[in-house]
């Protein structure tokens, strides 16, 4: 299989399926609103920080929803529409196919996230305080979190029906960390949930906090890597055993 084929498939699907245009409309709406608010109160630093925070949070949420829904629906759709057969009839192993699919979806999500973040940074005037290293940490961690979300979505899509996979994926992606944090030390079991929602350093950046300590940052990375590997392993096991 030629390199980049699956990458192209994912981009075409996102563009033709109008997921990217719809996200673009949402982002455009944010840009218009932000510009209007900034024109009303040009000197308010608090408002600028708030708008930057909203923009960066949007850049976290939108790609996560898109990649999650794409990853939970793509494989079952390929199997159901029988487009997987001509792909796997070529000399390509199922694991390689999964790996390329995961890379393609993660990359698509990362590009979306970077573009949205860049837009949020460009439209808001610079404010004093935010540390560039924190921003860099945030953007790099987002790529890892998107990889985890994609892997979880792919695993769920082979474990349960579509609607369940989307629902469980959304709950795990957006509330895992919240549940674990709110439960506190009494509910140690809650910490086994994926806590991708904690991998969002947008507020840390906009409030001007320093970068995370290497150990703390590393633990978030480790959490993402472990969940990605585990989900990809589950996905691979289910996919290899599946009779096509």
């Amino acid at each position: 299989m030629r390199k980049g084929v699956i990458q192209n498939v994912i981009w075409i699907k996102l563009l033709r399926g109008r997921a990217i245009p719809i996200c673009a409309v949402v982002v455009l709406l944010y840009v218009l609103v932000a510009r209007w608010l900034l024109s009303q109160h040009p000197d308010s630093e608090a408002q600028t920080r708030f708008l930057l925070n909203v923009g960066l949070t949007l850049a976290v949420i939108l790609p996560r929803i898109v990649t999650l829904i794409l990853s939970t629906t793509h494989l079952p759709a390929e199997i159901e529409s029988r487009t997987l057969y001509p792909l796997l009839a070529r000399p390509v192993s199922r694991n390689r196919f999964l790996w390329e699919l995961w890379t393609a979806m993660t990359l698509a999500g990362t590009v979306m996230m970077l573009m949205c973040s860049l837009l949020a940074l460009l439209i808001t005037p610079s404010v004093q305080g935010p540390d560039l290293a924190t921003l860099l940490q945030h953007l790099v961690l987002q790529a890892a979190a998107l990889g985890t979300v994609t892997a979880i979505g792919m695993a769920l899509s082979l474990l349960m029906p579509q609607a369940m996979a989307v629902s469980v994926g959304l709950v795990l992606t957006f509330t895992g960390g919240l549940i674990a944090t709110a439960w506190g030390p009494t509910g140690a079991w809650a910490h086994i949930l994926p806590q991708v929602d904690l991998c969002n350093l947008a507020t840390r950046y906009t409030t001007g906090m320093p970068p995370m300590a290497p150990l703390q940052y590393g633990s978030l990375w480790l959490h993402c890597i472990l969940w990605s590997l585990m989900s990809l392993w589950i996905c691979s096991e289910r996919f290899l055993r599946r009779a096509l």
Binding site: R16, G17, R18, A19, L62, I65, I69, L70
Partner: peptide, 14 residues
Amino acid sequence: MLCDFDASVTFGIL
């Protein structure tokens, strides 16, 4: 009717 399943769910949820 305007877009595919993925985009429709994404926009509906949003």
